[in-house]
């Protein structure tokens, strides 16, 4: 593969709103988007684990992304959606406020986040890009799911 080609390669991002901010994930890791249904609470789980829901017969853990990112969490209503994503072979639901767009962004336009910021959300951002003047954060999915250690704790 030539460098020319890599330069011209583009990624498709699904962007969504969470905690008044705009985030996105690579559309290749998105399985489906579904409406909010009440989750069954998991005892002794971290605050950002919303619980589990029934996704056509499988038990789907749902992460409250706003809480996970340390952002203010609004009231969960029927308008909220769950983005079902694959994270390292596991299927996880991300509770967000709303899905906004599908964006095609050239790979070159994705910039690594500046390492200045020290807020919690920082560690979850893989890259930044500007689309139509809006800053879109690309979520690092692998850091969203709790590790086995945090679950056991």
């Amino acid at each position: 593969m030539s460098t020319e080609k890599q330069k011209s390669a583009a990624v498709e991002l699904l962007s969504f709103r969470v905690g008044e901010q705009e985030y996105s994930v690579d559309i290749m890791s998105v399985r489906e988007i579904r409406g909010w249904t009440r989750a069954t609470t998991l005892p002794h789980s971290p605050a950002y684990v919303r619980g589990v829901i029934n996704l056509r017969g499988t038990v789907l853990p749902v992460i409250d992304l706003a809480t996970r990112l340390g952002l203010p969490r609004g009231q969960v209503t029927d308008r909220n959606v769950i983005i079902v994503v694959d994270i390292a072979g596991r299927t996880v639901g991300l509770l967000v406020e709303a899905v906004s767009d599908i964006l095609t962004v050239p790979q070159d336009d994705l910039a690594p986040p500046p390492s200045l910021a020290a807020d919690e959300a920082q560690t979850f951002i893989k890259a930044l890009t500007i689309v139509d003047g809006r800053m879109i954060r690309v979520l690092d999915l692998s850091s969203v799911m709790p590790t086995a250690a945090t679950i056991a704790a």
Partner: peptide
């Protein structure tokens, strides 16, 4: 329904 594979061990909970 196993819970362990999709999430992990939850104390006091065997499955779902």
């Amino acid at each position: 329904k196993g819970l362990h594979d999709s999430y992990g061990h939850v104390p006091g909970v065997a499955a779902a």
